[in-house]
Design a protein around this nucleic acid. Structure first.
Length: 748
DNA sequence: GTAGAGTGTCATTGG
DNA sequence: AACCAATGACACTCT
């Protein structure tokens, strides 16, 4: 076992040297590609090729190779794969690299600490460089990462870990861990692209020549690169090879109170470069940033900015040539710290890292609850290490076993978001899952937008005319219904209407023309039957609305309203009796009474005539007091009957409208829940990205002795200008405490 | 025979 | 004050 380990280590070192010889650098875009797949899954659906869990098996299955990670054939395997991948990557472009400017603020007071810019400390500065054509490595991410790591250490003049020979155990462990990390996290398909390495090589050359990084980008190299369209390592999106970081377009929508302009802008880009659905990605980012912004509103980051940020004019910290649509890169300079091969990788981090302290501190506040103890509580808002360093890295890259560090975005998610997630899950369990929502939508879509369909409306007319009238009236508001009923009842042409007027005038006309009576099917059918049985009564047709009602009270059939009926002599005697009985049954009580009292006009006239005409009509006849009283009662009851029908119909419409509103709200709720699920899912993946990238960056930091920094003692802090600072935890904790108080004060 | 829906009627209220 | 729409409540009929 020991020999195996040694063999592995030696093999890795040899491989690293090999990669460095051919100019391969490791870049963080490995993580970009490895982390974005989940986002793609959100948008495009799951893709087994990007499933993160498969990365663990990647080394055993890639390219058909079946090999155990500890196999002694590892170097052969890696070499073969690397060469193959390099060949494959020859025609690909690569994302511009990320520049990481970190300032070690504490460690040696007399040295060039905060503010100074050691020219040699640009471990993470990278650019495209033409890769050695002889050995472009595209596919072997693990070896590539490691190679880039050591290569950077060599090239950058920073204190590099021993490349061979006297490797300490920490070094070996770190190498092993980083190697495994790269494997586990997965690498992008174009991580080791040709153009990318070309840029890197160029930068490396310039660094060796003592050229400042910003000169590189502002000079010919940058222009030349700008002319070329680079392809995002993950998404394949083409964009100018500049140092852009035009995340401002995104973050502008998320204003932050206390942060200087550009602070937020730098870290978003990588996720926005998805070729398949960049807009969706941007939307997701906007959602994320909006949440973070809400939290950032409560936090003042000015303190940290004053303390640790490079001045605004600092070329290193502000050298983002923010070309639009090229938001990939983020400059993070790790001064006084050597960072292995983190070139553009940090750009992926940027969105999160930036937004955390910026939006900062607020977003992180939940991470370090005041009641938490020791380190966790002290990791402030801007203390990235405390937030992001996972136990894994702590145990491995850390010589002093530090306490377990909280989750990077744990504060974001753990408290508020997790509650929401749980609520959401609960809501889904309660029946608002997307499937049901979609079903609901289908159901509604089939409803033609009206809540009043036959199944829902027991009072709807069974006849086509009736249903149309009913649906139209139901679609209108109840107020319109009442107004329509009022208009119909107020109409002076009662004889033409002859119907109960609930619906509007036009509707009433349609209904009357079709039915000529009360707008309910039972009455209509009865009336029709009666009318066709006795054509002689067709003359009564407009006025027989009351006859059709169900309520036929047993009264003496003696009092037929003879005024509107043809002479009985025209009918045969046998059928005449039957028809009389039938008509008696069809007549209402008031009609029977009117007939009994020998009222000389129809009940319809009594009921529907306007007051003036009604009084005129009464004046034409010499009527007794009993007749007048009956006529007034008939009129009152008739009007009230119509009013009751209208009222009931209105009531039904109101109920149906409420039902439709409830269904609409349920549909909206289901949709919002779906959106929430997707948003939370993307947020979780962002969190994972931030965590892994933080680990990547921090794990590659080396002190002057070439040893990794202890996560328990140091933390990465995201400064307001986009740079990343390596500060001791105590300082970070103090800052965090200060920023914790501010939102509280603000709430007061 | 009973429950429930549909309808008519009365009393009341408010415009 | 008269008229009328709206509506709750009740009764009746029908299924």
């Amino acid at each position: 076992m020991l020999s195996l380990k040694k063999y592995l280590t030696e093999g890795l070192l040899q491989f690293t040297i090999l990669l460095s010889l051919i100019g391969v650098r490791v870049d963080v875009d490995t993580y970009l590609t490895s982390q974005l797949p989940p986002l793609r899954e959100i948008i495009l659906g799951p893709s087994s090729a990007y499933t993160q869990t498969q990365f663990h098996n990647l080394r055993n299955t890639l390219d058909g190779y079946g090999i155990h990670p500890k196999s002694i054939d590892l170097d052969n395997y890696f070499t073969a794969r690397r060469l193959l991948s390099q060949v494959r990557a020859l025609d690909r472009f690569q994302v511009p690299t990320t520049e990481v400017n970190a300032w070690l603020v504490h460690r040696d007071p007399e040295g060039s600490v905060s503010g100074s810019q050691p020219s040699s400390g640009l471990a993470l500065e990278s650019s495209s460089g033409l890769q050695d054509v002889t050995g472009p490595d595209n596919g072997v991410r693990e070896s590539e990462t490691e190679q880039g790591f050591s290569e950077d250490l060599e090239d950058l003049g920073a204190v590099a870990p021993p490349v061979s020979g006297d490797l300490t155990k920490e070094d070996i462990d770190l190498i092993d861990i980083l190697w495994r990390q790269d494997i586990d996290l997965g690498a992008g398909r174009e991580i080791f692209d040709y153009s990318h390495r070309q840029k890197e090589q160029d930068v490396d050359k310039e660094l060796q020549d003592g050229t400042e990084q910003e000169d590189t980008w502002s000079g010919e190299g940058a222009e030349a690169l700008a002319r070329n369209l680079l392809v995002d390592g993950e998404t394949g999106e083409s964009f100018p090879a500049q140092f852009p970081a035009d995340i401002s377009s995104i973050t502008e929508a998320v204003p932050s109170e206390s942060e200087p302009p550009g602070l937020q802008n730098n870290l978003l880009s990588p996720l926005l470069t998805g070729t398949e659905s960049p807009f969706d990605l941007e939307q997701q980012w906007q959602d994320l940033m909006s949440i973070m912004e809400m939290q950032a509103m409560e936090v003042n980051t000015s303190t940290s900015e004053i303390l640790y940020n490079a001045p605004p004019g600092d070329p290193l910290s502000t050298n983002y040539s923010l070309a639009p649509n090229t938001p990939i890169n983020q400059n993070v300079s790790l001064h006084q710290a050597s960072l292995g091969g983190c070139s553009q990788d940090f750009s992926l981090f940027s969105p999160e890292v930036e937004s955390l302290p910026v939006a900062g501190s607020s977003a992180l506040l939940p991470l370090a609850p005041s009641n938490s103890t020791s380190l966790n509580s002290t990791f402030g808002s801007t203390n990235l290490a405390g937030l992001f360093f996972p136990p894994q890295l702590n145990g491995t890259a850390n010589d002093t076993a530090g306490p377990e560090l909280p989750d990077p975005l744990g504060g974001l998610l753990d408290e508020a978001m997790l509650d929401e997630i749980s609520l959401m899950d609960l809501a889904i369990e309660e029946g608002f899952n997307p499937v049901q929502a979609s079903q609901l939508e289908e159901e509604f879509d089939s409803d033609s937008g009206l809540s009043l369909d036959s199944s829902h409306s027991p009072s709807s007319l069974s006849s086509p005319e009736g249903s149309s009238s009913s649906s139209s009236s139901s679609s209108s508001s109840s107020s319109s219904s009442s107004s329509s009923s009022a208009s119909s009842s107020a109409s002076s042409s009662f004889s033409e209407e002859g119907a109960v007027g609930y619906s509007s005038d036009s509707e009433t006309l349609d209904l009357e023309e079709a039915e000529g009576a009360v707008g309910y099917q039972p009455e209509y059918s009865k009336f029709c039957r009666m009318s066709y049985q006795d054509p002689s009564q067709l003359s009564c047709l407009p006025y027989l609305e009351h006859v059709g009602h169900n309520h036929t009270y047993n009264m003496a059939p003696s009092a037929l309203d003879s005024a509107d009926l043809p002479p009985p002599s025209t009918l045969k005697k046998g059928s005449k009796e039957k028809q009389a009985d039938f008509l008696d049954k069809q007549m209402s009580r008031d009609e029977h009474r009117a007939r009994a009292m020998k009222i000389p006009f129809t009940n319809d006239k009594i009921i529907n005539l306007p007051v003036e005409e009604f009084n005129e009509l009464l004046s034409k006849y010499q009527l007794s007091e009993a007749q007048l009283s009956l006529i007034r009662d008939i009129r009152r009851r008739g009007k009230n009957k119509m009013a009751a029908q209208n009222c009931r119909k209105r009531k039904l419409d109101t109920i149906l409208n409420l039902e439709r509103d409830v269904e609409d709200l349920q549909r909206d709720k289901a949709r919002l829940l779906r959106e929430k699920v997707e948003f939370l899912r993307s947020l979780r993946q962002m969190k994972q990205k931030v965590q892994s990238l933080y680990q990547e960056v921090f794990g590659r930091l080396r002190d002057e002795n070439g040893r990794p920094y202890s996560p328990s003692q140091y933390a990465l802090q995201y400064a307001g200008d986009g740079s990343v600072l390596l500060i001791p935890r105590t300082l970070a904790d103090q800052q965090a405490r200060r920023q914790e108080r501010k939102p509280k004060d603000r709430r007061k």
